[in-house]
């Protein structure tokens, strides 16, 4: 059993008067892949965005309850969101590389956080991150071409490289394969499997197969509630809750 990396207790999220999450309590283990599944609009993405406080961007969004990362409370005005986010990387549904060169995309994080001091250090980090994201071989000769010139799957791996360049502990992935074809999806899934040796990964996914393939633990969300959570194998073979059962077997969702 691994250590708990992120722990949430009774997290409620309101958009204006509408409640999107109801008392979600979930522990996420270190160096494991945790998958969040559930039908559209069930609140899994909202939950994911609570962990790096991306919900702050939405004016009407209100989060209460408790979330701790490494036993430190992050739902508080005193938390430095910037340093929190430098510890937690995020990969989005649609690949969103900056309209800059491949190199600059990866170098952006280390530069703004002042992780490196010399140019060679920066190059090293960029190369390492690209290698870890399995992209280096494909792009090493064209690091100064725009990131948007890559294919969808490559773009998504570029975004992963961008995220790991700041050396985060946790990587949040919000349906990272939903805009990709099956081959690119397989590549990314392999990559996720590799990355879990170094990072704690939380992945929101639409596809139950994907959750089954990549994750060690799974949480099932429905109508803003965390219905069931546990080892992936158990959830998929022997769920306790009948809603989970229904979703897994494809009766709704």
């Amino acid at each position: 059993m691994n250590n708990v990396k992120v722990s949430t207790k009774n997290v409620n999220v309101h958009y204006g008067t509408k409640q999107a999450l109801h008392r979600v309590t979930l522990d996420i283990n270190e160096k494991e892949v945790t998958a969040l599944i559930g039908p559209s609009g069930c609140g899994k993405s909202t939950f994911l965005r609570c962990i790096n406080r991306m919900n702050d961007l939405i004016d009407i969004c209100k989060v209460d309850g408790s979330i701790t990362v490494d036993n430190e409370e992050i739902i508080s005005d005193e938390v430095d969101v910037v340093s929190l986010r430098s510890k937690i990387g995020m990969v989005f549904q649609k690949p969103n590389p900056f309209p800059k060169s491949i190199f600059d995309n990866v170098a952006y994080g280390p530069t703004i956080h002042g992780i490196v001091e010399t140019k060679t250090d920066l190059e090293e980090i960029v190369h390492l991150s690209l290698k870890r994201s399995g992209l280096f071989k494909e792009v090493k000769d064209r690091l100064h071409e725009p990131g948007t010139s890559l294919s969808g799957g490559q773009q998504q791996r570029l975004c992963i490289a961008r995220a790991i360049a700041v050396n985060p502990d946790i990587i949040l992935m919000d349906e990272p394969c939903s805009a990709l074809d099956p081959i690119a999806t397989a590549t990314i899934e392999e990559l996720i499997d590799e990355l879990k040796n170094k990072y704690t990964i939380v992945i929101v996914t639409h596809s139950m197969q994907q959750a089954a393939r990549v994750s060690q633990r799974t949480g099932f969300f429905h109508l803003g509630e965390l219905v069931e959570t546990g080892e992936t194998q158990k959830i998929f073979t022997n769920p306790e809750n009948e809603k989970t059962q229904g979703y897994i077997t494809g009766r709704f969702g």
């Binding site: 991306m54 961007l57 910037v82 510890k87 990387g89 989005f92 900056f98 703004i112 975004c159 995220a163």
Partner: peptide
């Protein structure tokens, strides 16, 4: 999405706006 990407990297809002 561009701004979100920058923010998720830990850029401050000001940096996200002025850099991207």
């Amino acid at each position: 999405s561009i701004k979100e990407g920058a923010l998720a990297m830990g850029a401050s809002k000001m940096q996200a706006v002025f850099h991207h």
